[in-house]
Design a protein around this nucleic acid. Structure first.
Lengths: 330, 330
DNA sequence: ATGAAAGCGCTAACAC
DNA sequence: GTGTTAGCGCTTTCAT
């Protein structure tokens, strides 16, 4: 392996500032109490020389690894393959990580896999982990030596920082819009039952329906096209006069629309359909999808920042907006 | 920073095999000539103990960094934001990299940016780079110390390994299908002119049209929705009797369909539309898109493997299939 | 072909 | 608070 072009090293900075490497290191890490003249000098010199700490060396010395793994829980590997949401999330995370000179890797884990976090903790090279679709059993299995190096997207709790969207508000807005536009018999294809942070969608549905004095029309679902197809079929079989369907994610909404079309039901004429997440495809097709939009870029940038940013800057919980996007389908 | 749970180290393997660390290292790297009994023993022991070399340490010692950066050339940052293709590519790369204990990061660079590769070479922590949408000027600016650590998706050449899809065959298949199904006045919205590997699509178009004895109807385009919208508008304005449009990528096809619809033109009744790439959305919407499908997962797995796999295993060029997928739009 | 030893660039005990 | 001294786990000269 060839030697690389040499860049500015901590040694250089230390020498130029007239201090030892250790002092320079501490100055840059903002370790210990206040700043002495020496530390200020170090920081100035580092800035001036364009010093960029080597993440590799830092990781080796610190024993914490360089990469951030995005661990997605799901019922099968399909959770990370061909999934639009994951693609967006990963692009955002990989962009944010690049600014820190760090890479991300992607891994699927079975729902409730209690071995996930302990395994990741034992793995060398892992700096931190972003947990997607977190469940309580997984959260509870967190080993002590991973503390402070995990952020959860969705539920959080204890000392586990989390970032999530205000899905209660988002789904409420979608449902209220449907009711406001004259829909009276609204059904919902629910998110997978194992996903705790998604339960808020069902809560929103129940709340809005109760407020309108309407009965509940709930069917089970997952996160894939097929549960949308089956869900819509079940809805129309059980309640043929349904005039709106709220799907817990866009992909499910697409599946539902496919079934409706094959049933000869017009969207949005006969039945309005809305999704949740606002994946790129929602805006694209010949019949664009009404949905709730989420700042996926901000979510994952925040998660990565929490892991890689200055230590201690990790907010316990970040809540981002979930906003209604009106398009053609509802 | 807390010390991590200790895993099997090279030291352990060496001791167990009764050799020095240096010998163990060489055995595992398949360094030097043939295998001696000692080396075979080392490999067996390593296997048995479940030894996984620490990428961080390896990188520090080798001076080559741990992460793989996926550099996407484009006219603006939009090239990596909200782009379905990039999302898929990144998921695939990040999955493949995870198997090597390595992370990937994502970066946009301006088209033809001659500073990209030299900059990446100087950056510590960069193990290798996957170049997406490569152009000749960028390829030519490759610094010597990056040799063997870059793989290009699309064009390659010289000693730069590349992986690409047989886009000539794929686009030819799409066009032949249109002709075979009775379309006679086929127009094409071209890929961006700056992207060399995409020129094959126009070549295919010219070739097929010439074979059919049909005139060319070419308009310029990019990779976004809007060039699809404008492209279709231009096509219908210049040649109102057009009965098919081939778009150089799915997103452009969606844009084209939007325009056609607003013009009161039926798809596929009046005008057939086909795309290229087969992004998730192509299968999703209420009017699914005929397109050419590409094994994005295999492409990026191959690229990452070329960078991270055993050295010397880097094939000069890997060509993967581009296959017609018949759906509703054409 | 093998072992001893010297780093890679940084952080973290430990004295001062 | 600062410098000194050890490493982190591996690769790589350099002798042998």
């Amino acid at each position: 392996m060839e030697r690389r072009r040499t860049a500015v090293t901590l040694e250089d900075v230390a020498r130029a500032a007239g201090v030892s490497r250790a002092t320079a290191s501490r100055a840059l890490l903002e370790d210990g109490p206040g700043s002495t003249p020496a530390r200020a000098r170090v920081r100035a010199v580092a800035e001036g020389m364009g010093f960029r700490p080597d993440p590799t060396a830092r990781a080796l010395a610190g024993g914490a690894g360089t990469r951030v793994v995005i661990a997605v829980l799901g019922e099968s590997r399909a959770a990370i393959e061909n999934c639009e949401y994951v693609g967006r999330a990963l692009s955002a995370a990989a962009s944010a990580a690049d600014r820190h000179g760090v890479g991300v890797s992607l891994r699927w884990a079975p729902v409730h896999d209690r071995g996930l976090l302990p395994g990741l903790a034992a793995e060398r090279g892992v700096h931190g982990v972003v947990l997607v679709n977190t469940t309580w059993p997984v959260l509870e299995s967190m080993p002590a030596d991973l503390r402070g190096r995990v952020v959860s997207i969705g539920i959080g709790g204890g000392d586990m920082p989390s970032v999530d969207v205000d899905s209660l508000a988002g789904s409420t807005a979608v449902l209220r819009h449907m009711c406001a536009s004259g829909r009276r018999r609204v059904a919902m294809i629910q998110p997978p039952a194992w996903l705790p942070c998604a339960r808020r969608l069902t809560l929103a549905y129940r709340h809005v329906m109760a407020g309108e004095g309407r009965p509940e029309r709930l069917v089970a679902g997952g996160f894939d096209l097929d549960s949308g197809r089956r869900g819509a079929a079940e809805v129309m079989a059980r309640w043929p006069d349904t005039d709106a369907i709220f799907a817990a994610c866009d992909e499910v909404a697409f599946g539902a629309m496919a079934t409706l079309r094959s049933l000869g039901v017009r969207v949005p004429g006969d039945v309005a359909v809305a999704g949740f997440d606002d994946v790129p495809a929602a805006a694209l097709g010949p019949l664009s999808l009404t949905t709730a939009s989420h700042p996926v870029e901000r979510i994952y940038a925040a998660a990565v920042e929490a892991l890689l940013g200055s230590p201690g800057a990790m907010a316990p919980r970040t809540l981002l907006p979930s906003e209604l996007v009106l398009r053609e389908s509802a």
